[in-house]
Write a protein that binds this DNA or RNA. Structure first.
Length: 301
RNA sequence: CGCGGGAUAGAGCAGCCCGGUAGCUCGUCAGGCUCAUAACCUGAAGGUCGUUGGUUCAAAUCCUUCUCCCGCAA
């Protein structure tokens, strides 16, 4: 099938990898390169780089609302558009442009976690399972009819990064399977009563607030590992927390209970033992390694 | 040229401002001690202090070139 692919971040790469094995991807749409990263260089998106490496034409319109862009899109004469974390809103004209419409790969079991950050929000909320949905796109965000779903169990220590990788792998596989069965399957409407939204990750959320139950703090640490990573400030220096575990002791929330042989900080109830940490300018390391040359005083943070 | 931090023994760090024989906590190895806490005691090995050039009687330290790593912001 002739397909136009639309996507931007790493999540879309395994989907693309799978797609090209059975279909003809005639054009790749992705977000325009932007100034980002250290040194403020102009960087292309992961999908952009992938497409160039595979010699597939790349298009980076700022919007698909203009007639000009829509005409270009039409000229690809694709039967279907596959969308995976593209980042642009598709107007109704575009949704109707292809004989088979637009199909979206979404990293949650819809209708739960519609929106921008379904992976992190699922872990942050303590969900025991997540999954991938293949959905016929509608104008309303992530509300289209669902062709297929595959669940993925979230083990207690799974991080956001691990779930991301797991779901993108499943997504690529499930998409292919669904496309093969497109003529025999019939999509299911989403039950609106179970819909909830995964808000974008805000940097301000990554400052650790110890006035909450330790279990919730641990969920946030897992969800935000490796990005953007929860952090706390100690003597004005930022320490990113990558892994931690529950400890059955208590103290004033934010108090460093132990900081010499291990790092334990009190939460609202119980406490957390931080096991993987990153100091400013340093690599991520085991806390035990850091504590060979560094010591936390038993203060409140 | 967006802002900033870093590179010192296998690991993590201090020393640099204020130049004067390379330190700490661990790890490793050897020996000793022990009912006992992540045991303790003694000793040893292990460094061209990231790279280039300069200043100086003398550079980990001051100036300079380059490389690599990282945080922030966007």
């Amino acid at each position: 099938m002739k397909i136009v692919f639309m996507g931007t971040p790493d999540f879309a790469i395994p989907v693309l990898d799978n797609l090209v094995t059975e279909h003809e991807v005639v054009a790749v749409y992705t977000r325009a390169p932007k100034i980002s990263g250290r040194g403020n260089r102009v960087n292309k998106t992961p999908v952009h780089l992938w497409a160039e490496a595979h010699h597939i034409p790349v298009y980076t319109p700022k919007s698909l609302k203009s007639v000009e862009e829509q005409n270009i899109l039409q000229q690809h004469q694709a039967q279907l558009a596959v969308v995976a974390a593209y980042g642009l809103i598709l107007p109704q004209t575009v949704l109707d442009m292809f004989p088979r419409g637009c199909i979206n790969v979404h990293a949650s079991l819809l209708p739960r976690w519609r929106g921008a950050a379904p992976i992190q929000r699922a872990i942050e909320a303590g969900d025991k399972q997540s999954g991938v949905s293949i959905m016929q796109m509608a104008l309303e965000l992530d509300a289209g009819d669902v062709w297929a779903q595959e669940a993925v169990t979230i083990p207690p220590y799974m991080t956001g990064g691990q779930l991301h990788d797991a779901l993108s792998t499943v997504g690529g596989r499930l998409l292919l399977k669904t496309l093969r069965q497109l003529d025999t399957l019939s999509p299911t409407k989403q039950d609106e009563t179970f819909a909830c939204y995964a808000n974008k990750i805000d940097k301000a959320e990554s400052l650790l607030n110890f006035i909450m139950p330790a279990e919730r703090i641990l969920d946030k640490i897992r969800a935000f590992n490796p990005y953007p990573a929860m952090y706390f400030l100690y003597h004005g220096e930022r320490f990113k927390v990558y892994e931690a575990e529950l400890v059955d002791v208590s103290g004033h929330p934010g108090q460093i209970i132990e900081g010499e042989h291990e790092l334990i900080i009190a939460a609202q109830n119980n406490a957390i033992r931080i096991t993987k940490i990153q100091r400013e300018g340093k690599q991520v390391m085991d806390v035990s390694a850091l504590l060979r040359g560094f010591r936390f005083e038993k203060e409140n943070i």
